[in-house]
Nucleic acid binder design. Structure first.
Lengths: 323, 323
DNA sequence: CAATTTTTGTCAAGGTTTTGTAAAGCTTGT
DNA sequence: ACAAGCTTTACAAAACCTTGACAAAAATTG
């Protein structure tokens, strides 16, 4: 997953020709004479091209019609070709691919992204922010993305909002984008029907759901079958969901501590409703604020991402699915 | 737990052929030659297909008519196929025969999906619900999906919740899934930098954001550059966002009418803050409740999806981008 | 500048692979 | 019984492949 070439798409020469604007015969000639592209073959010998090849041929086509000699540029990289065209025409060619060198140091990359993303938030540039996120997810992988980019970024945003550098609307904008990305973040693993089930939500009075959302994703990445219910749900409803899905655990995120009496009340009710056989996991920035109740109703407190994953593993193995 | 998988729906090859648009003989050929689908058999040897298989064949059919070679993509996963199509439908491509047609059929299909989805909601089966949605989006297209599946479904859910057939938690679960699908719905239209800009949000006191989200998607499909801010935002913050993005319009969704005095107040403030040059569009179930204020502050009231799109077109053309 | 060579796009011939369709003959299920 | 399925075998159109050739355009040389 380090390299982001998800070159799942493969085309035959006819399609490539139509898309790139280079005739089939010429594509083959360029390959034969200069190895301008080097497609794989099917068992029967047909050439199989990738999206990159198409992009490449497009660029080569443009370059040649700008007077460059094919023999000279045939083996240029995509970047070189782009630069070439950018250089001798004032027409910039928008291309979403921004290949970044894959230095082994993901940690450094993540920090870099945090800076870039924060800059985008500050500039209120949703489009850029989203595109940074998308690239980062591919480059870093979901888990690393959440732990080393998203979390520091959210902290940073929160901090700056408190100090007045950012307005609430900045935070809202960023949240909205992050939520919309959840689909990509979790999409990748089809979980089995026998995976342990979990309900994730936020108790009544708690509106900020980002923490819950991240918990849901992490659990899914760990192989759980998660039902995410959104924010601001009364204990009864959560309990009903547990019953319906036969869930083995409930994860609750508490990230705000203004309604001091509601949260404890809700937690007690929830514990009573779901019984003692269902694990109750609590996380969130303000969880520690309610220490006393948490102990009372026997919840598992999330200390860190690593700790959360550990809890998940234990719960998953402790009570193997009875087939 | 008995695995109550989605085996509920199973089809014979004739049905599959009609639904997917791939002739029976060809379906069998694809299976024989590439294992494109691997249906179970009845005792007597007849093939039994699932909804997934249909979706799969439909996608394969589309992909082949887009130039992909069946032998190369036959074993792709549903997700890979979706990605494939999403990716190369964004490349405009003159297609000689575009067998979209079947508009009368789509309406029927959508109704069929509403039933299936409602059944999944009732059974609290998030996984099935999500997979129905995903298939439906591919089969129906984003706009048709929103207008002819999602809207009726949400109405139905709302109605049944009021009558007590469903609990709030059912609605939460469905909402959460729908929100997570927004990423696909938006169809990654790479919109130009000169596209008109819009802010979408929900005023303070309004927690239900689904309407706003759908409005944002529709506007994006129409080519606008939308910044979605989520729910429950004070007028000042919305106004700030307008300023930052230089937006030409603000769309607000009002779907709840309990805080009778807050909404009018917020709307007046918002109008004052953004001035008269920025269009203020209001939609949502309870918008009509505030008729008086809406007229006072000169908002455009959304009457229907068609009407909304019309408003968008007018705004987009009325004030061409000043380059 | 003219003659010569090299580069480059195109085409044709003749063979192979891929892919959609169909026929024949038998089986299943309502 | 009869429509709808199943398997096998076959066929043909479409799309590819390779080799080799050729002429226009571009570059080099005399």
């Amino acid at each position: 997953m380090t390299s982001f070439k998800d070159d799942s798409s493969q085309y035959l020469i006819g399609t490539v020709s139509r898309r790139s604007g280079v005739k089939s015969d010429l594509v083959r000639a360029w390959e034969r004479r200069y190895q301008a592209v080097t497609p794989i073959r099917t068992a029967g010998g047909h050439r199989i091209y990738t999206d990159q090849d198409i992009a490449r041929l497009k660029l080569l086509n443009q370059a040649t019609s700008h007077g460059h000699s094919i023999s000279q540029i045939a083996r240029f990289s995509l970047d070189q070709l782009k630069k070439l065209l950018q250089h001798d025409t004032s027409i910039t060619f928008s291309d979403p691919h921004n290949p970044v060198a894959l230095t082994g140091d993901r940690k450094f990359l993540a920090e870099d992204y945090v800076e870039k993303c924060y800059a985008a938030v500050l500039a209120f540039d949703a489009k850029t922010l989203e595109s940074h996120f998308e690239n980062a997810i591919v480059e870093l992988g979901s888990q690393f993305f959440i732990e080393n980019l998203l979390t520091p970024l959210l902290n940073k945003i929160d901090q700056h909002r408190k100090s007045g550098d950012l307005r609430p609307v900045h935070e809202h904008m960023a949240s909205a984008i992050i939520r919309s990305l959840c689909y990509i973040l979790r999409n990748n693993n089809p979980c089995s029907d026998y995976a342990p089930r979990m309900i994730v939500s936020t108790p009544i009075g708690q509106l900020h759901e980002l923490g819950a959302l991240l918990a849901a994703i992490i659990a899914e990445l760990k192989g759980w079958q998660v039902t995410y219910l959104g924010a601001n749900l009364p204990a009864e409803e959560i309990a009903v969901a547990v019953k319906y899905t036969n869930a083995r655990a409930v994860t609750i995120s508490i990230s705000f501590s203004n309604d001091d009496h509601i949260v404890p009340k809700e937690l007690r009710r929830l514990r009573k409703l779901i019984g003692n056989k269902v694990a109750l996991i609590v996380g969130g920035r303000s969880a520690s604020y309610y220490e006393a109740v948490l102990d009372e109703v026997e919840v598992l407190k999330i200390q860190s991402y690593e700790h959360f994953r550990q809890i998940l593993d234990e719960l998953a193995s402790a009570n193997p699915p009875h087939l």
